[in-house]
Design a protein around this nucleic acid. Structure first.
Lengths: 218, 218
DNA sequence: CGATAATTTGACCGATTGGTAAACATTACA
DNA sequence: TGTAATGTTTACCAATCGGTCAAATTATCG
């Protein structure tokens, strides 16, 4: 995909690495805001600081840039969920999962928006990844959560919807950043809003998943 | 904006109402998936079943269609939050707010995606509405929630982040529908997923906001 | 009916789109 | 250093973009 057309040697040049990096960085800027259809090669080329034909020397088509970008970002994006540990303490695992996801929303908002755009459009470029690797990973972690519930370590709940709700609440601070800023106003829209969000979400999920005292129990 | 150019009479024709309705319906289809930049007048015209010049007879520009659509949808979209009642019982108010928002995600997913697209792009067309009417409404309801907390009716928490988390968790089922379906798989991706989501979210928010027994209290 | 206003259409415009061809410039390496 | 491979640019292409125009068609109403 990312191989220059004229390449006759298999090794990647220093220039190739640098330029491809520049392009993907610029593409992330553009795609994450405008989505695939709304983005143009010219935009990306301008942000990357090179001419359009030069960019097209490294990635043959607009789709190729997008695919390379998605591939690169997808792995990193799922890291926090992969780190979710079955042997750990449920409360601290959930707590740190929320924290990690929130940190990613803060530090990698473009990546979050890239996926959000893709989802809104019906995931035309990543449907296979969703039904394959993603589903498998979620299935695995859902089983962990279900086991915790069965063991009485957390309240019984649907593990899939629990995961969805952690995804949505944390990613919201990246994807809907403008709205959050607008509603919070000048005063609370600073960097501190992520700390406030973390505090609230941890409280919500930890207390919301505490095992409830059964009335009939001694 | 939505006035035909040739109009010399002020009254709206039956045909005008019908066609403008068709156009906005089609525009909702197209804009909600592709965003503003990614959508074309030709697409909208085709979905609306009319020629492009004919469409442009009713709405002069692409922006005019988009603005009319946003205006129309915005009011309806905030209805559930407006219905949030200070005099009601906190638990049932929160419960029914979640339910209403979830119903909207189920029944009006395109409207949800329209806004999501707009937010991802930095709200270039609705920033004023966010900082004005929306912020005021949220401020008002946040005060209600704060009063409930102060009165000991619910646990103390940041009301703004509570509202954000209800928005994000419910809208997730509209905006990330493909992902939800892919992860849940064939078995659980049916209509029942909204019931499951409702059950989970009510449990999460109700239990998560219960006043915690203070250890030192008798 | 007739006439006037409202609606619809096909042909068209300049700008932008994704992408190409080939000449030119630079780099790496024997 | 020479030369083959790699990298860059200018000029260009057909298709599509948002939008206009004038002519043709249809609806409205006295």
């Amino acid at each position: 995909m990312a191989t220059p057309r004229a390449a006759k040697t298999q090794r990647r040049t220093r220039i190739q690495e640098e330029k491809e990096e520049q392009i993907l960085e610029a593409a992330l800027d553009v795609f994450s805001v405008n989505g695939f259809r709304g983005s143009t090669i010219d935009q990306i080329a301008e942000v990357a600081g090179m001419s359009k034909p030069n960019l097209l020397y490294y990635f043959r088509t607009k789709e190729a840039i997008h695919r390379a970008l998605i591939d690169r970002v997808l792995f990193t994006w799922l890291e926090p969920l992969r780190a979710f540990d079955a042997d750990g303490n449920p409360e601290s695992e959930i707590r740190s999962y929320i924290r990690r996801k929130l940190e990613m929303a803060r530090d990698f908002p473009r990546e979050s928006r890239l996926f959000a755009n893709e989802m809104l459009q019906g995931a035309p470029h990543v449907e296979d990844e969703l039904k394959g690797p993603l589903k498998e990973l979620v299935d695995e972690k859902a089983e962990v959560i279900r086991a915790w519930a069965k063991a009485g370590k957390i309240a019984g709940c649907d593990p899939y919807h629990l995961i969805f709700s952690i995804w949505s609440t944390t990613q919201h601070y990246a994807d809907f950043d403008v709205q959050v800023r607008a509603v919070l106003g000048q005063e609370h829209a600073g960097a501190g809003r992520f700390e406030d969000a973390a505090r609230f979400l941890e409280q919500l999920f930890i207390d919301g998943l505490k095992v409830k005292p059964v009335p009939g129990a001694s």
